[in-house]
Design a protein around this nucleic acid. Structure first.
Lengths: 113, 113
DNA sequence: CCATTATATTCGAATAGTCGAATATAATGG
DNA sequence: CCATTATATTCGACTATTCGAATATAATGG
């Protein structure tokens, strides 16, 4: 039933379905960074970070290169950044709706008093 | 560490991290459909479909309304459709890259012969 | 009222994901 | 060579997800 495009999409979404990995991707939007820097800035446990990097590598969301004993990660494509930006708009749209709904409720409660 | 926007994004990505749910969302892009139609067209097991709908409802990706004994589902926002469209571009870009890489390899193997 | 249709929920089994600790591996420098 | 740094992998424990079967609930029509 699922075609390969749908499977691909699901795989990418799965890879992004964790806030830590989103944070990593978002830090990389401005360019390549060493693993150590990502770990430090995001306050991650080293082993756990490595596991998250592994997920991102497996789905080819990031590219890595070695320099000495350091590994540098970068995003493979800027398209993912577009996806995240649309998500921000979606979040804001939802927030706006929720605020409007709350105001409506408060207005009704004010009138009922 | 993760802010609420990142958690939100991760939640939405999680909800989309299954090909069946992507297929459902894609069928809904053209407008509201009854559950039964979705189940029939996608060849889903009823109980499993219901579980997938439940995931989509929980994250407010879909809106549902009842009419008699039928439930109609629709997308809450067109922004998600944009996300899926970017993903298609991403897939195509990856495919193009893979093809190019394969051709490169074949060219090298041809030259090595 | 009862049988049928429509769909949600629960159940249990199996698999997958996530964490931190422990371990392994590679690179560096003294 | 060995200690240190950097990072990947494994382990084990726990949680989450997915499936189909079974069950529950609601609506419909005769």
């Amino acid at each position: 039933m699922p075609d390969s495009l749908q499977r691909f999409k699901a795989d990418i979404f799965q890879a992004l379905a964790h806030p830590t990995r989103i944070a990593i991707v978002e830090m990389l939007r401005d360019g390549e960074l060493p693993a150590g820097k990502l770990i430090e800035r995001l306050g991650l446990e080293q082993a756990n970070a490595s596991q998250h990097f592994s997920v991102l590598r497996a789905k080819q969301i990031v590219v890595n290169r070695k320099e000495g004993n350091q590994v540098f990660y970068s995003l493979r494509s800027p398209l993912l950044v577009e996806v995240l930006d649309i998500m921000r708009r979606y979040f804001q749209a939802q927030l706006t709706e929720t605020m409007a709904a709350l105001e409506e409720i408060e207005k009704e409660q004010g009138a009922a008093r």
